[in-house]
Computed example of a mutant assay.
Amino acid sequence: MISTSGLTKRYGKIEAVSQVDLDVREGDIYGFLGANGSGKTTTVRMLLGLVLATSGEIQVLGQDMPGASSRVLAEVGALVEGPAAYGHLSGRKNLRLSDAAGPARPRHSRAERIERVLAEVGLDEVDERPVRAYSLGMRQRLGIAAALLGRPRLLVLDEPTNGLDPQGIREMRELLQSLNAAGVTIFLSSHLLAEVEQLCTRIGVLDRGRLILQAPLAELRRPTGNTVLITPDPEAALALLNGRVRHRDGQRLVVRGADPAEVNARLVSAGVAVSELVAERRALEDVVLEASSASADRMSAR
């Protein structure tokens, strides 16, 4: 769906994006991670033909960009740097303007398209109040509704949860998961590790303009070979598993051994209550910090 090779953007002597090779596949929810100022938005704008690359190649939906932008963007929905809207108009009126300004679509079905996308983003019950009276979460949903007017195959979003409260973030996550389940590939730029960890299937990490990590999330969060145990009787568990407990934090114990069933059977047979037992997986935060540290070491060695 998105492929880049050696994608680079320079502003004078400043290299904002350097030799980035993206690989976004159909069906992905791809999390494009990086701190503010790492080059994420510049990369997104190059993908959409809004900024010209200094060098490198871009393909979106199998076609070269920006040369094929008129064909490609008809099948791409995008929300970059926050939703744009006329605050004095209602959501429906804003969507009428967005639809009229977009790629040519039949006017006779405009009202049907607008009601469809409002329903998809959960704004179908909204009244005719002006957008300036919307919450931030509602405005974000309206921006995504505008991006969905053309039934895109690919949705490109730049920080869609920025500024949202926890409830708004959860609602946005559920919306994006439902769109992906309906067949939309999602490319999501974010600096929120926890949100990407809950939502995305594959990630790429940008650090000072360089792509330092790109892989399926399940692969990055592979089991460590340990078991996480939560028990109301940690002292009994410690005694029973003597020598195998790597770490204890209150009722939470990290036990050497990749088979939770074996640990559970041993505890239960000894009468030790178990509240939770799961295979330990690497935290995405640890993976990203490790990759960032390795990248910094490589840069300093040059």
Rank of each mutant, 00 (worst) to 15 (best):
residue 218 A to M: 06
residue 199 L to P: 07
residue 202 R to L: 03
residue 135 S to F: 03
residue 161 T to E: 11
residue 173 R to D: 06
residue 125 E to F: 05
residue 201 T to L: 02
residue 202 R to Y: 11
residue 160 P to E: 03
residue 124 D to F: 09
residue 166 P to V: 13
residue 156 V to E: 04
residue 125 E to L: 13
residue 122 G to P: 11
residue 199 L to K: 10
residue 210 R to I: 02
residue 188 L to K: 00
residue 131 V to N: 07
residue 208 R to M: 10
residue 143 G to F: 09
residue 218 A to C: 02
residue 137 G to E: 06
residue 126 V to R: 15
residue 203 I to C: 08
residue 190 S to F: 04
residue 155 L to Q: 02
residue 170 R to P: 14
residue 200 C to W: 01
residue 156 V to I: 15
residue 121 V to A: 04
residue 159 E to D: 06
residue 157 L to Y: 12
residue 128 E to Y: 01
residue 185 T to E: 01
residue 175 L to S: 07
residue 211 L to E: 12
residue 141 R to K: 15
residue 199 L to H: 06
residue 147 A to S: 09
residue 214 Q to A: 13
residue 154 L to P: 00
residue 126 V to H: 13
residue 197 E to T: 13
residue 144 I to Y: 06
residue 192 L to W: 02
residue 129 R to S: 14
residue 179 L to F: 08
residue 166 P to A: 15
residue 139 R to Y: 07
residue 216 P to E: 14
residue 138 M to R: 09
residue 166 P to S: 15
residue 193 L to G: 12
residue 170 R to M: 11
residue 168 G to E: 11
residue 204 G to V: 04
residue 195 E to P: 00
residue 178 S to F: 12
residue 145 A to D: 04
residue 171 E to Q: 15
residue 132 R to M: 13
residue 205 V to R: 02
residue 185 T to Y: 01
residue 160 P to N: 07
residue 203 I to E: 03
residue 222 R to V: 04
residue 175 L to Y: 12
residue 177 Q to R: 15
residue 216 P to A: 11
residue 188 L to W: 03
residue 120 E to L: 15
residue 149 L to N: 09
residue 148 L to M: 06
residue 220 L to Y: 12
residue 201 T to G: 15
residue 164 L to P: 10
residue 194 A to R: 14
residue 176 L to Q: 03
residue 168 G to L: 10
residue 146 A to P: 00
residue 206 L to H: 05
residue 129 R to N: 10
residue 187 F to S: 00
residue 142 L to C: 06
residue 180 N to H: 01
residue 204 G to E: 00
residue 167 Q to I: 13
residue 184 V to P: 00
residue 181 A to D: 12
residue 171 E to A: 15
residue 206 L to F: 01
residue 155 L to P: 06
residue 201 T to F: 07
residue 127 D to R: 14
residue 170 R to A: 14
residue 170 R to K: 12
residue 193 L to E: 09
residue 198 Q to E: 14
residue 150 G to L: 01
residue 168 G to Y: 07
residue 149 L to Q: 03
residue 149 L to E: 05
residue 195 E to M: 10
residue 202 R to T: 12
residue 217 L to V: 15
residue 133 A to D: 14
residue 144 I to E: 00
residue 194 A to T: 14
residue 144 I to W: 10
residue 133 A to H: 14
residue 179 L to W: 05
residue 149 L to S: 05
residue 147 A to D: 06
residue 134 Y to M: 09
residue 133 A to F: 05
residue 124 D to P: 10
residue 158 D to M: 03
residue 140 Q to K: 07
residue 187 F to Y: 03
residue 202 R to S: 13
